[in-house]
């Protein structure tokens, strides 16, 4: 099935929930309403003629200050019919929630945890909604564009900018002193 046909099938089924379509992108992308993503996913997975059985990738996105929105991008593939489509949802930065798709594609469970870990995306009805890579007591979500790195983690200095080796080392560098003891 071509991306245009897939978009057509989605529009016929979901109508207003399908908001945009980029046909000439490298990955043809269908943008859908965040609240509809679970239904769209279930439809794409089970509909004969679509059969998207593989969620290749699920990424978090930060669309920046101007739009003030976060997003999730789903790369789908059908191993039996060998066609591919990309879905995209966009939610407001504050209190934006995306329904989970991990009951449709099991692999989404860890991908959504990663999106939460690095972007702070909230996924509704996720069975295990916690960080996956960073420590549980880490502050902030590092891939957000307005991320501020914390000063200390468990007593160890974290920032790396403006902290050349000299700052940490001058107490150690005995042989460089004017008057070595």
């Amino acid at each position: 099935m071509t991306p245009e046909a897939i978009h057509g099938a989605l529009q016929q089924r979901f109508g207003q929930a399908v908001t945009a379509f980029e046909a000439d992108a490298i990955d043809p992308t269908v943008t859908v309403e965040a609240s509809a993503i679970h239904d769209v996913g279930a439809f794409l997975r089970s509909e004969p003629g679509l059969l998207f059985d593989s969620l290749m990738c699920l990424s978090g996105m930060d669309y920046g200050e101007e739009t003030s929105s976060l997003g999730v991008v789903y790369h789908l593939h059908s191993t039996s019919l060998r066609h591919t489509i990309t879905l995209r949802v966009e939610v407001p930065r504050q209190d934006g929630v995306v329904p989970t798709v991990c009951d449709i594609w099991r692999t989404a469970e860890w991908h959504e945890r990663e999106a939460f870990d690095l972007f702070g995306m909230r996924f509704d009805r996720h069975p295990d909604h916690r960080r996956i890579l960073l420590p549980d007591d880490w502050e902030g979500h590092p891939l957000l564009k307005d991320y501020q790195v914390q000063e200390f983690y468990q007593g160890i200095r974290v920032p790396y900018e403006g902290d050349p080796p000299e700052i940490g080392m001058d107490v150690y560098r005995f042989q460089d002193r004017e008057d070595p003891v």
Binding site: P142, V149, R157, Y160, G168, M169
Partner: peptide
Amino acid sequence: NYATVQGIDR
């Protein structure tokens, strides 16, 4: 980057 300790002498 934020994730890596910039030298274990920290």
